[in-house]
Nucleic acid binder design. Structure first.
Lengths: 340, 340
DNA sequence: GTTAGCACTCTGGCTTGACGAGTGCTAAAG
DNA sequence: CTTTAGCACTCGTCAAGCCAGAGTGCTAAC
């Protein structure tokens, strides 16, 4: 059914369309990719490819463009992830590695790099707190009403909050309480820090412990909002498919809703490794004309976040695939080093 | 030179143009704003207004639109900031006040509110670290190689870094060093924490102090990058002046460069209180067709950040002015409360 | 199975012309 | 001196019509 030549024609259509964004006709293929047959033959093959659903004719007198199904076949079967030359490779690793002091800044740099290297929109989710485990809790007296709560998570995240106490308190009690809380909660997954557990502990302490635990519980709720970094949003205007303002607005609107965006990327990167989601495979209508390439990154052996690239379905899959893979790996390495 | 009637005509032109985005002609004014004179008279007044440079004729057979100079006169002389009804007022204060636990989230909410209330692009600069003063430095032993450095700043910001020590160290020394560093650096402005001072202290400690101080110095450098929160970027597509993709791209490009954006807002909000910058008064070419309304906000009596709204020069100045003012004040109040 | 030829379809860009909005000027009226 | 009516003139916009170009499917011949 899919003989050698059909595959070559399909590949030619996809390659050409990715390059030019114009429907590609039989003559173009015959001229540019010398398959040794005439346009008429190619037309016949194209008619077959269209019947299987790999390509589409936007209107009767136009060339063909790949369908989502066509891209899927391309990504799964035909595509070879492009080699990133060693020079560029090490340059990227150097730039990611250069920012080793602050996680958020590192993540932001990664998103910039991702968008520059692909020319599409890059999204990077910061390491997710609710995948962490509590390592240590430390209370520091600030003044007679305020306490600084420092929450050290594994791997490698630190949170702090200033807690206002309802009345004055005994600062000398803090080290002891810190030790006990740490002992009690160490190793507990951040997301498991449920109210039940907190209530249980609450009973054992007086007002001080209660107020503190309320704050920790509050923090838990907030943490639902994961931080997400976005770069290269304007790049969508480089793509002819977004000449249409309405469509561009739809996508931009999604990009502005950080929570929806973060949800999207985590959903798509459900499985580790590089994932490609094409067109209507995407869960949201705004990106039914887009493809998303995602990958997770890890700290140590633990998946802690995800990165992704959003572009038109007519995307340079081979390049994006490699870049996403490389960057996710670099990020994992640097973060893992940071924590050790 | 500017008699009563000219002013009324100017006001009519500006009001109408802000509403409709269409050049407004003499007949429209005569019809809609009954000044009691005929279109012909109004035409004469308009010719005069054009001569002074308050209005412009985009092309010969069109009505007039206000010039930057016209808007300037309007903002300085004619405009009355619109009253925000008490209901809305308290609703806003409630929503800002609801998020009292985390500064960044608070600031982000403020930016969302600002864009929703104005329908333009909102920018909020987070409280600026380098306007803070060091309040306390605390070192916590994490494990045999790592130390957690907590830097408490006044007013109300906390920073932390994980410091990797070159070798093992004596954890028992940390409390003492913390105390001494705090004593030594307390009250020093964050931006004055220069290498000279750090070097001086460095001499007194061994390796431990040296590594730590390097990190503090590093932090100082990073802090140049102030955090900035953006909302409502898509709203620019609601404005007919950005139907032209090229122009929209220019503005969006600026909005993506967070450092340029942050620089812009701090420059424009140099003086405290609400500032309006119109069209070509703006320092950057990308926003020569935009106006920016900014205000600073304070923590206690100290200016700590700024908020701003960017829209087309044809902006609803009266409303934006009031909203910016209100939101800056609300932010100041909540932040000040938070710190006390 | 492949190819050449041909009639047909559809898009996109260009031109054209009519229409409407708005102006400036002039001359008359107040 | 100020205001107004009238008029000729200028542009921008929009729809209609037209043409060229690209590409197809089909048929018949190789």
């Amino acid at each position: 059914m899919l003989n050698e030549r059909k595959i070559m024609v399909l590949q030619a259509i996809i390659d050409d369309y990715i390059r030019s964004a114009e429907p590609v006709g039989s003559r173009t293929i015959a001229r540019r990719y010398n398959l040794g047959v005439s346009p008429a033959t190619i037309r016949n093959e194209m008619a077959d490819l269209e019947e299987i659903g790999y390509i589409i004719q936007p209107h009767i007198s136009a060339g063909r463009i790949p369908s989502d199904k066509g891209y899927r076949f391309y990504v799964d079967v035909l595509m070879e992830p492009s080699e990133i030359p060693e020079g560029k490779r090490s340059e990227i690793q150097r730039r990611v590695g250069a920012i080793s002091h602050e996680v958020e800044q590192l993540v932001q740099e990664a998103s910039k790099l991702l968008s520059v290297l692909t020319n599409y929109v890059a999204v990077v989710l910061a390491p997710q707190m609710n995948k962490c485990v509590i390592e240590r809790i430390q209370l520091l007296a600030l003044d007679e009403y305020r306490i600084l709560l420092v929450l050290v998570l594994y791997p490698g995240l630190v949170q702090n909050r200033i807690v206002r106490m309802p009345g004055t308190y005994d600062p000398d009690a803090l080290p002891q309480i810190s030790r006990e809380l740490t002992e009690r909660l160490q190793g507990v997954a951040y997301r498991d820090l449920l109210s039940s557990l907190i209530k249980e502990i609450k009973r054992e302490y007086g007002d001080l412990g209660a107020a503190l635990l309320d704050v920790i519980a509050g923090e838990l709720v907030d943490s639902k909002q994961e931080k997400v970094f976005l770069s290269g949003a304007i790049s969508i205007f480089e793509q002819p498919e977004f000449k249409d303002l309405e469509r561009a607005k739809g996508l931009l609107g999604l990009l502005e809703q950080k929570d929806a965006l973060s949800g999207l990327i985590s959903t798509l990167s459900r499985y580790s490794g590089v994932q490609v989601t094409i067109g209507r495979e995407n869960p949201m209508e705004e990106i039914h004309e887009c493809s998303v390439v995602t990958s997770t990154y890890s700290v140590g052996s633990k998946v802690m976040g995800a990165i992704g690239v959003i572009g038109p379905t007519r995307m340079e899959y081979a390049n994006v695939y490699s870049v996403v893979e490389l960057l996710a790996n670099s990020l994992s390495e640097v973060l893992t080093d940071l924590i050790k």
